[in-house]
Amino acid sequence: MDLVRILVVDDEEDFLETLVNRLNRRGMSAQGALSGREALKMMEEKEFDVVVLDVRMPGMDGLEVLREVKNRWPFVEVILLTGHGSVESGIEGMRLGAFDYVMKPADLEVLIEKIQQARERKILRES
């Protein structure tokens, strides 16, 4: 099986770098984007399986990015990162087609498991 191609989107640089490194060390192919716009640009150039997306970001916020991603790449699965959980944005995110959410600080094992389920879903849908 090919490596899972993950795009992590978060405006906190340290968090982003750490998470991308840890995912790569765990045998995945992860890249990072510091903003929604950067993420969308990267997705235009390269195919990703799973997007891990921070809900609260300056500029284009996570839900806006999610809407755009699901519109343009409906098969890409999105996992939301919520700072301190908010029911309304959680419901909204699920309604917009997010696969799942993870509360920050994200537990790596939990996140990896969700990434794998999201990837499995993408494969099932494409087959």
Partner: peptide, 21 residues
């Protein structure tokens, strides 16, 4: 899309989210 789901875990995840509120 049908996938294997641990119902208790899925439910608990959502409960936790609502519990913060």
């Amino acid at each position: 899309i049908f996938q294997k789901v641990d119902v208790n875990r899925l439910v608990e995840d959502m409960v936790k989210l609502v519990e913060t509120e």
